[in-house]
Nucleic acid binder design. Structure first.
Lengths: 153, 153
DNA sequence: CTTAGAACGTTGCACAGACATCTAAACAGC
DNA sequence: GCTGTTTAGATGTCTGTGCAACGTTCTAAG
């Protein structure tokens, strides 16, 4: 605890970080298991499908996508492998850059996403939003907006 | 997006969750890599050492510890294996319950923790606390306090 | 045109983590 | 005491991820 003083942190500050950690892990695990049992869809896969669904023409370059879902390039390669195997995503060559590849959301993928989304949203509601007081959501947003939400280094 | 309406979530609410996700992952990765390069200590290990350091007599039952560091029992077993191999933690039998085991922080472990803590705290300061306005930390704490910080199910 | 360098994505490797299963010990109930 | 149930931890196995290295393609400098 002496160390805290050395770095000028209060115990409260440290606790806030720990709570943030625990809260996120807790919510993420809940979402993961709900999605898994109900739709056989890991959270990471859900995130990928969502990003693709929101992207123009339902497609995104691998590199681009990797940044958005907080995954390393290699991690994304394997994940897309699995999603492609399951027919939820397809790989398509990039016309103007032969190195590039698009990950494209298939119709099957879109359907699966639509099917899983209620579960996902209910989970967020139950484990996160409903527990906050009115107006606090805006507060949290403002707070989080100041944090580094940059891409993976 | 139509699905959002169906579940009564606004886009803002969904965004808040995503930002929380990104913020946590981003900070955690930063801490992890800093601890790794400077002290060869993964974040999970650091958390274990911290919990033990704060526990009475520097010891905690495996099961108890698993809950605090958000790790499965098997995950903790392996992690303690590694920490024991490195001499940072020792296993000790439990007097009044022959099934039980204590994980005990060794002096080496305590030293290593003390050595790594400045790095850890500096990271939290740089990637989290310093980015918030004054008074916001209390706000966040109150908010997070309402979230489910329960043990692993 | 040629060549050095950077960027995109994939692959080999090692490691961490979860789930299910297992053993040993404690705790019921009778 | 004896048996059935529960709990504490450890282990086998499988999945997922990151890092470093690689092949390929694009781009810039000479």
């Amino acid at each position: 605890m002496t160390l805290l003083r050395d770095e000028g942190l209060t115990i409260e500050e440290l606790t806030v970080w720990r709570m943030l950690q625990r809260a996120h892990v807790h919510i993420a695990r809940h979402l993961e298991s709900e999605l898994l049992v109900a739709h056989d869809l890991p959270l990471a896969s859900y995130d990928v499908l969502t990003q693709l669904a929101e992207a123009p023409a339902r497609r995104l370059r691998m590199n681009d996508l990797a940044g958005r879902v907080l995954l390393s390039r290699s991690g994304l390669t394997r994940l897309i492998d699995r999603l492609q195997r399951d027919g939820l995503v397809a790989r398509e060559a990039c016309a103007d850059d032969a190195r590039g590849l698009f990950a494209v959301l298939t119709d099957t993928g879109a359907a699966r996403l639509a099917e899983a989304t209620p579960t996902y949203l209910r989970g967020i509601r139950a484990k996160f939003l409903d527990l906050l007081g009115p107006g606090e959501i805006g507060l949290v947003r403002d707070m989080l907006a100041k944090l580094p939400i940059s891409a993976v280094h």
